[in-house]
Write a protein that binds this DNA or RNA. Structure first.
Lengths: 346, 346
DNA sequence: TTGTAAGCGTTATCAC
DNA sequence: GTGATAACGCTTACAA
């Protein structure tokens, strides 16, 4: 067991606001104002303080500031995962927009588990963040309680549910399903299947399915739904789906996959089996993952406004905090839309 | 201009350690111990406190704790980007390992700019994080100064430079170049080119180039280096490179691209021009991006230990903090290796 | 095992 | 425009 490196506690020797104040011959609060409301400090003192700050290499202690003001310049975000192709762009847009305004990002991932989300939210709240951003609308009762009581702006992203209390920045997954169904039906396909995501807990994907199947039924087409084994990686699940579907007596002429990873697996499995796509079977994905345009044939898909969600969520947060100006009240409902990207696979 | 939502300052009504202490009939410090050294609190009080905490929904204020102890349970990380395929896995591994031990991740991206990195580091230091993790060894003088003076564990990832002071968790990019050169030469290729990254500031990619060209020279092969236009997206830059290289009088029989995005662009441009790969020209990438195995032909590439870097970096951080046990001193030098993934494109 | 007292470094409040 | 003073909610140090 190694010993924790001994660090002097009571910040002995640390450069504080007081050190700067003494050196500059002003009071601590003036230095504080120099950082927070510089216009309230006379130009001469401003210059003097700037000098001392540079000379001493003073870095404001934001922890102390956060405690004193009960409002740290931190925004917390919980996302299902970081490394996936979906949420990464939202994260990037969110983080960049925030940091441009001096806010820091506290991040955790939930892996689509509402329990993990709850524990992340609980830990975050201890840092009294300026705002909290969640992904999707599905939370544990504990999380619901915390966000109801938290006295900070809460934003839910990716989903869009007007009747919920938090700010909404997202799109309707159901609508995505509707769009996909109309599109495939409009292209003349009539034996149409949906392939579900193998990741348990991705409830939004089920809404896409519901919109898809309901619309097909309305159009008089009986929709197939294929559910891959729960433990498979998406790419493998896509393969499994394609092999299973094309091995039947009656085969589909178009398949809508719950996401592009599944679709890519399906695409390759189809080609390996000698199918020509889209002639024998069209393939439609969801997500417009980075590789979608690199496949052969390139993958038709629905592109979610990922980056836009991140930027807009950050903007609404900053507006709620009064950092960014708004003409009127902060827009609570922000409905964005997916874009159908037609490529070669349909 | 909208007004900042008025929030009570002096946490009026907020549930604090003292509220809990009063309710439980103990002193504040006992409640504090209940959270930090539960074994020092008698079972009866422990149970009583647990009850009250649950009943009041008390959430410890980590900001106050951080200020008092000068050691917040936050670890800060600066990465070139979040959404790219490269660093995302490192980030994920890092974040997950940390959060398993109750530490939170403070994150910012630098976009390969040492100025942005410096400003992120400065902001982070204000939160007095328990540790700081950077990507690569290239920093501004200001950053160097801060990390030299900061009294916390510093880790540099992805690069591996034993002579530097911070903990190193990474691999040798130069060695990657050497491996690639030997591999292509060993396969019998003799007219070999390197395609540089279009992203300015990606200095590690230049080290791969150096290892590659130096090794080829040693092997008696004259290495080509193609530099795409600086403003192009990687995929487009790869296309440009392939078209330019194959348009010459003497064409290469193998190309090593600085990363898989470039390689994918090259691959598709080659196929579109009617080349068969690898017969007419072999293509080797770097990164093993998620799509590498989905391409047709699938892309041979060098796979960096991305996730492993993240997990190991977090482990070393936790060991340095005494959270995780170590037999001896914390390993300062952690050299990992890339793996050559041979697929169809070579 | 438990408690008391004294800060941690900043900002809100109010007075000048 | 500037300053003195008292918090913010917790943990360290020391005592019992």
């Amino acid at each position: 067991m190694n010993e924790q490196k001994p660090r002097k506690r009571r910040g002995a020797g640390r450069v504080t606001l007081n050190t700067v104040a003494r050196q500059a011959g002003v009071s601590a609060i003036t230095v504080s104002r120099y950082f927070n409301q510089p216009e309230q400090v006379s130009p001469e003192r401003r210059e003097r303080i700037a000098q001392v700050v540079a000379q001493l290499g003073y870095v404001p202690n934001l922890v102390a500031g956060g405690l004193a003001s009960a409002r740290g310049k931190i925004v917390a975000m919980v996302t299902p995962n970081i490394s996936g192709p979906i949420f990464a762009n939202t994260l990037q847009g969110f983080s960049d927009t925030l940091s441009r305004h001096g806010y820091q990002l506290l991040l955790a991932s939930s892996y689509f588990s509402i329990e993990q989300e709850e524990s992340a939210v609980r830990a975050f709240l201890g840092w009294s963040p300026a705002a909290l951003v969640l992904t999707s609308r599905f939370h544990s009762p504990g999380t619901e309680k915390m966000i109801a009581e938290a006295d900070i702006p809460i934003v839910e992203t990716w989903d869009y549910v007007p009747e919920r209390a938090p700010l909404q920045v997202g799109f309707s997954h159901y609508e995505v399903g509707v769009t996909a169904a109309r599109y495939l039906h409009g292209k003349g396909y009539r034996r149409i299947a949906f392939v579900q995501n193998s990741a348990v807990g991705d409830l939004s994907a089920l809404e896409r399915r519901d919109g898809f199947t309901a619309t097909l039924s309305e159009l008089g087409v009986h929709p197939w739904v294929f559910v891959p084994d729960a433990d498979r990686a998406p790419f493998e699940a896509g393969k499994q789906a394609m092999e299973a579907l094309m091995g039947q007596a009656i085969t589909p002429d178009a398949i809508f996959f719950a996401n592009d990873n599944l679709a890519a697996g399906g695409l390759l499995a189809g080609q390996r089996a000698g199918l020509s796509i889209p002639q024998d079977c069209a393939v439609l994905g969801f997500g417009d993952y980075p590789f979608a345009h690199m496949l052969l044939p390139s993958l038709s898909t629905l592109q979610p406004p990922a980056l836009e969600i991140g930027v807009l969520a950050a903007t609404r947060v900053l507006q709620s905090l009064g950092v960014l100006a708004t003409d009127e009240e902060v827009e609570r409902l922000n409905l964005l839309h997916c874009q159908l990207i037609e490529r070669e696979s349909t």
